[in-house]
Nucleic acid binder design. Structure first.
Lengths: 348, 348
DNA sequence: GCAAGCACCGTGAGCGCTCACAGTCGTTAA
DNA sequence: TTAACGACTGTGAGCGCTCACGGTGCTTGC
């Protein structure tokens, strides 16, 4: 036993094979009695394969439990089968925002159904942004879904420069195709609804001014009110959080105690506004009616439940991946602005 | 011009090169005046490289803007540089649960700092679960982070079987290492606190019974109450949602109107419970004191703000990736149970 | 009867990298 | 002086796949 021979040089391949490695395309080919090429053809849904070979290959495929080595495939096809979902947020917004979570979920699902996988990347810090760019340039990803809520995000321009297919969620008309909800139209819808309830001192808690949601929804509010808009009835929140909503509402209440309606640019913000209102002794929807935006899960959970504008999140997600996949496939695809919808509950 | 020669066979490589492709290791080597091997060595932080070569390679590296082709590297090293974050949830829980979102965020960040990327996978449907398994077996991923809230999740066992390094978030003592908060201890902490406020009819809204959070936190509640526990004061919520919390609280209120305190197994649930309480005309914390669990963002946003148990989410995330990376590196690493902390606000 | 066309199939090359091995050269010990 | 050693470097092979090409055998049209 002690004079055991050292492993024969030829046996190295076998040894490596033994150490936990799946069957290769060649194994499948051998078993099916065809060649590598034929197996590859059926793997890629190709034609020019006889029914007999096809059956044999399928049989061998299941028998061996073969699964393609994506690295090897990517090496030659230069496609990775992954999409980067990039969250361009200085603050940890994912933390609080259910809209983002829903979007992420839908995109993961859609992409999965298409056979690609989603890699999540943060792009808050400069280091992270650099990582995203490197990742993209390295060809690790076939395309990127940039979720950016800040207008003029430099990452969009840089991504555009790399030439890798990218689509932005949120308005980004300058460099890249985008998919967004019709924020402005939605805001008009809500404002009009508030006006139609016979309210005349209609305030708004707008989002941060440097976000499309902030700017566009405020613009819609102004559109609808026309020259009846009173600047003192407008307040920008500092962020899309409950506490920011509360603060903004308090400010409004102090400045213009006679307000009888308020359009709040997001549901999360509206939750805060609602609390501020109730803390100040106002009844909702008696004294003040309030409308939110997003129709996120929390909107139906407040008391009273929030009347709000529904963002077509499933459509946005679908649009995002559709446009991206089209771009990747070399087809042209235009930006999309998706319609919103008024959801009436009890707060207005 | 018409007798233009057809492309010379030798020029094919050059033509392909022209079509948008990054510099290879060979290009770098040429520029640095060294060989492939030497460049590879510096790329992999290897020793046995002379200072001169090292400098030359670094220079060439930046000059060419070289970035490794991960596919080629993976093909030989059999490591992919990606970790799968698997969400084993039948329902779209990501949608509502801020805890999950925070966890995802932290893990992405931590993994990114380590140089790996996170691919997000859903495992709600059978098809999705199959995809996860295939993905893992294909070696597309170096390890998996399984976030599973249901005890006895079959996916855990299947993943364990594949042999790929996996760590579970939440208790999964049977097959795999796990990292979890000390749910039971936290529940005891809160229950004790409620008792110390001189309340004697202490109820609980527990989570769904088949989740660790549901079982463990209820166990902690029982532990602390000892033989004073009244089964009529216990109600399991049907899910971790606001509305489920409201429903459970309504049930409790009908059954035992004399309750004067309630421990609710999650903040989201507590929001619902709070609404139910207030809708029933009870004041908080006057008539009834209420304690939550998680310390998610919403806990400080309710009115009154929730007294709750803080889950050490940053520690959990760190533990998760640490244990996983250890396992991947072949080091053994044990399961961890992390301590929780009482956060007193105004609801109790 | 033969050329042309077609469907199918196998094979070589090569994607960009790492790894093991086999050098080369200068330095030190015998 | 020479052998041995160490630091450093280049090279071949090969990871598992796809793609283009060329070959086979069969059918069809003239």
């Amino acid at each position: 036993m002690s004079d055991e021979a050292p492993p024969h040089p030829k046996s190295r391949g076998a040894a490596r094979r033994a150490q936990r490695r799946g069957p290769t395309i060649e194994d499948v080919a051998d078993l099916a009695g065809v060649s590598r090429g034929t197996v590859s053809r059926v793997l890629n849904g190709a034609h020019h394969v006889s029914p007999a070979s096809l059956a044999a290959v399928h049989q061998a495929l299941t028998q061996t439990g073969y699964v393609v080595n994506q690295s090897a495939r990517s090496l030659v096809t230069r496609r990775s089968g992954t999409i980067a979902f990039v969250l361009s947020e200085p603050q940890d917004r994912l933390f609080e925002d259910p809209v983002l979570a829903t979007l992420l979920r839908s995109c993961t699902q859609l992409l999965g159904d298409h056979g690609s996988s989603l890699v999540l990347m943060l792009a808050g810090t400069p280091a992270e942004r650099a990582r995203v760019l490197t990742f993209a340039r390295a060809g690790h990803t076939d395309g990127v879904l940039l979720v950016s809520t800040h207008t003029g995000d430099p990452l969009a321009a840089q991504l555009a420069e790399t030439g890798i297919p990218t689509v932005v969620c949120g308005r980004e008309p300058r460099h890249l195709p985008f998919v967004a909800a019709d924020d402005r139209g939605g805001a008009r819808l809500m404002t009009r609804y508030l006006m139609d309830r016979d309210r005349h001192r209609i305030a708004t808690v707008a989002g941060p001014a440097d976000t499309p949601g902030g700017a566009e929804r405020l613009a819609g509010f102004r559109d609808e009110l026309g020259d009846r808009v009173d600047e003192r009835l407008i307040e920008n929140a500092s962020a899309y959080t409950i506490s920011a909503g509360r603060e903004a509402m308090d400010l409004l209440l102090n400045r213009t105690p006679d307000l009888d309606a308020v359009f709040v640019a997001s549901d999360l913000l509206a939750v805060g506004a609602l609390q501020a209102l109730q803390a100040a002794g106002r009844t909702v929807p008696g004294d003040v009616i309030i409308g939110g935006f997003d129709d996120s899960a929390i909107a139906s959970a407040t008391s009273p439940p929030l009347t709000t504008i529904r963002q077509p999140l499933p459509l946005i997600a679908a649009g995002l991946v559709e446009v991206l996949l089209d771009r990747i496939a070399g087809r042209s695809a235009d930006s999309r602005i998706l319609p919103t919808e008024l959801v009436v509950r009890e707060s207005a």
